[in-house]
């Protein structure tokens, strides 16, 4: 189950692979956002600044990530 070998065999035009990659990208984007927002808060960014950077409102970023 080496991911390198598998990806080699999957580097085709199999739609199952492309669609799975989309789902994985959504999760990866969410995970990257969680990590980046936490770091920005630690470094003193305001919710407004983070919202602007993400292209969403201060309220929505705070509702999602504020504890």
């Amino acid at each position: 189950m080496e991911s390198g070998d598998l990806s080699e065999s999957l580097r085709s035009h199999d739609p199952a692979v492309g669609l799975r990659a989309v789902g994985a990208l959504h999760r990866l984007a969410e995970q990257t956002e969680v990590a980046a927002v936490a770091r920005a808060r630690q470094q003193g960014w305001s919710w407004e600044q983070i919202g602007d950077a993400l292209g969403v409102s201060r309220q929505s970023v705070h509702a999602k990530h504020g504890k």
């Binding site: 991911s3 390198g4 598998l6 990806s7 999957l10 580097r11 692979v17 492309g18 799975r20 990659a21 789902g23 994985a24 990208l25 999760r27 990866l28």
Partner: peptide, 8 residues
């Protein structure tokens, strides 16, 4: 499987 799809 997920990582392989991303690698592809």
């Amino acid at each position: 499987l997920d990582r392989a799809a991303l690698a592809a």
